[in-house]
Amino acid sequence: MQEKLMHADTSALDLVLSADPALMEIVRLSLLVSLGAVVAAAVIGFPLGAVIALTRYPGREASIVVLNALMGLPPVVVGLAVYLLLSRSGPLGTWGLLFTPAAMVIAQTILVTPIIAALARQTIEDLWTEYREELAAMNVGPIGRVATLLWDARFSLLTALLAGFGRAAAEVGAVIIVGGNIDGFTRTMTTAIALETSKGDLPLAIGLGMVLIAIVIIVNALAWGVRRAGERLAG
């Protein structure tokens, strides 16, 4: 794409229609990083949200406020913190992860986890009010309760996942810092858009933006379809 993007007559539409390999690679990486972050954040965020929803401990209300506030974590700050952590001179420097897709997944996981955990907490707490006696009557233990609530709230939790995915896919501040926007290696849709903007090729930047929006819409449409199909089966 580096080559192609140099020419003024190349439009984003041409890149899409010709399935430009460099563009496809960028789209692939964007999806991989965002979805990877969402999966990792779900693995952390769902149980975390469930624990906060189901346990009572001193300072619980404060932790809910903090968790909700963390949904607005500034990506640049997270990017910088992860950068310093993963830098060769940082505590985790020996992992050699800076300027790799893995670093981008880590940064976005940190951004997405509070969103998923906070929304899961709310959903699970509401469902818990409804289920608590029934599960107690069925003698279901703590782990079984969490598993049951997560499963039965799955369609609402899907919305939490989509919110997380939206955040990850649209985010540029963190990934450009920890990924470095390396051509063909860590360049995502958003960092490519930032690059084209800085090159003054605003039409191409907008065109790439449209492609990104289209991808996000497709992902949401797929999720909606899954939800509808699932609800028909499980109510």
């Binding site: 409804e130 006696e133 029934e134 109510g235």
Partner: peptide, 17 residues
């Protein structure tokens, strides 16, 4: 309540079949 069971007045149906 391993050997006891209760049916509530408004039983909660799990969101499944």
């Amino acid at each position: 309540p391993a050997r006891r069971a209760i049916v509530f007045q408004r039983p909660v149906m799990l969101r499944r079949s």
